[in-house]
Design a protein around this nucleic acid. Sequence first.
DNA 1: CGTACATAATCAGGAGTCCATCAATAGTGA
DNA 2: TCACTATTGATGGACTCCTGATTATGTACG
Lengths: 388, 388
Amino acid sequence: MQVSGGDLQRLRQLNSLSSIRALRSARGPLTLTELAAETGLSRGSIVDVITDLHERGWIAEVEPTTGGMGRPAKRYRFRADAGHVLGIDIGVNKVLAMVTDLAGRTVASGRIAVDQRTPRHDRLEAVSRAVEAALVAAGLTPLDLWGVAAGSTGVVDREGLVTRVQALPDWAGVDLLGHIGQRLPCPITIENDSKLAALAEQRLGVAAGVRDLVYLHVGRRPGAALIINGQLHHGFSGATGEVGLMEITGWRAMAGYLETSPAAGDAAPDAAAGLVFGAARGGDADALAAVEAYAHHLALGTAAMVLTLDPELVVLGGGFSRSADVLLPALRRALEPHCLRVPEIRPSTLGEECVALGAACLALDRVDERFFSPEGSISRPAAPQRLA
Amino acid sequence: MQVSGGDLQRLRQLNSLSSIRALRSARGPLTLTELAAETGLSRGSIVDVITDLHERGWIAEVEPTTGGMGRPAKRYRFRADAGHVLGIDIGVNKVLAMVTDLAGRTVASGRIAVDQRTPRHDRLEAVSRAVEAALVAAGLTPLDLWGVAAGSTGVVDREGLVTRVQALPDWAGVDLLGHIGQRLPCPITIENDSKLAALAEQRLGVAAGVRDLVYLHVGRRPGAALIINGQLHHGFSGATGEVGLMEITGWRAMAGYLETSPAAGDAAPDAAAGLVFGAARGGDADALAAVEAYAHHLALGTAAMVLTLDPELVVLGGGFSRSADVLLPALRRALEPHCLRVPEIRPSTLGEECVALGAACLALDRVDERFFSPEGSISRPAAPQRLA
DNA sequence: CGTACATAATCAGGAGTCCATCAATAGTGA
DNA sequence: TCACTATTGATGGACTCCTGATTATGTACG
């Protein structure tokens, strides 16, 4: 939107950008003719632009195909391996660092188990070691990273400070930006974990391409996140999707219906829900009642968000979403009386790596803003110069 | 974002755009030197661009100022009168059509009183006559309009169809797009009235420049609208801000606390609220209790939206906002127990023209997209050619 | 094996836009 | 009337893009 004209170099820069965009979003490599058609530029100009991009290391040539009529065309692809980003999930039970290339493909990862009682210092230490391991596995140094994003439980404000945490006793106020920034000299973003999971689902998962969605994290600690107009909605102080704080939704205690159900027997709290969902699947009356009660309260908070935003889709993520076959129909039934139109509800597909994946997506978004947007400066690439 | 390179004309187009943007957002007229500084272009290029725009009728020259040192500079301004848009408020009690220029200044308006029982056909007829009157007053013909937007009660879907109305018995399903389009040959947008009021407040009113806000329409029929990331949030089916549909908020009946309060005496329902707010202002216990009860329920729905979105601001509009001195503190108190952070709350400032003004803003946004955005085509202006 | 055909790459000429520079112009103030 | 100041106007050079013609490199077929 804010494109601000300029001189001839600027025009060349814009055309380089269209070419890179075309190559990035294309399925496979493209010929010069295809690129000309895609960008609307003439053939001669495309040749100029592409040779320039090739020299600067942004794109690579691919073997031409044989067997067609006429002279085989040179083919070019975007060099997704020209740079890498790091996505970090700082969870309650694990720390997962994941290196991806510029196309978002996972290259390597490092994972360290922790638990709810791991003290702050040790958890931060685990972050450093997981990052280290992922970098070693990918054969990269911190200097090769173009961006980093990390997800943490709790409310994360605009400055990257964790302001409010329930799951971890000593985690509030932790300066993740500072801790990670000490080790990695590149742009860093900190974000709430549910928000990153939502982003991952919208980019790579079950909500691919959906512009407005509500992500529900169903688990022992419920959460929610919003994607509005294709973008993560952060909110003024980072506290979006916190409808669970309203007492009348009953979100704070609703997991108790599952954990204290007779169907759970005397299983440990973190195993109870799975048992109850299993029993409900088998038709157990107690279990069905517990799921019904849980869904009733989940629906109260969900309805508040759905009625507010009128989203296209609701995505069910988090631990309990493994039992979506039981939970999803119950939730839909419980939503009916509240909503004008109950949106489609889909269970998450990305599994337990979704937060780290979402973090990588966010880091890639920042890279896009810096290098691949008209406001950015592909003409003066900071990192890729080192390719040459 | 989607700027797609191109040839030399394209560059000129982008530079024309920056110049027009600079002139539009400037306080007064600008000299060529100021324009060069603003756009980053060289002096010579600015001369080219500006003479071109001048010939095409987009800008006008103003008298040079005398009294300064050196040769007096030519000064140019954007011709806000190069085009006009129309904003229409199709309300329960009135139809208001308002002609504004491209800067959003009201040029003329037409207004026709109706009431809740006016049948559909007559209300549509009133729309036509109000538009006619506004155009006559402005000295324009339908061909001079570059865009129209109209606001109606009820849920408005993406196709401009009014799908769900409570206030007007026979209004559901009305084809406003068709009715207006028959008379006015230009792009037309239909939108919900509260949404337009919210937009007006964000552009011209008390929320100027705020990116995320919740607009509360407090009146006999409550409503809400959202502005997210600086843009009106329409939602998948147009039904955003409908938290009042949740029974537990009590929005459907909360106006009853005011209308049936002993402090209202036996005033007519539409006058009761004003009396009660007045009595509350004077300290009457019954009235205070009624306001408290009203605010309690208003806060339930508001909290749902605030917790979902974490907006920077809540704007209080609609009829009851005239009593914001009483209602606003009560609402803030009632929100406290629900919210992490109670956002700032401000009463609306635009008065009863706000829906029509918001409609004009929306129509202007569409004009901006068509003419003044990189995706648009200022190079091939449809309407302004007729200036010459 | 050689020729016809199809597609791609390359090159040259021409046009449009922007920039830097310098002289000319129109005011002010002594 | 004469300096001083800031703007205007004009010229040449550099860059990018487009068009059209020419050359290169593969397949198909007699």
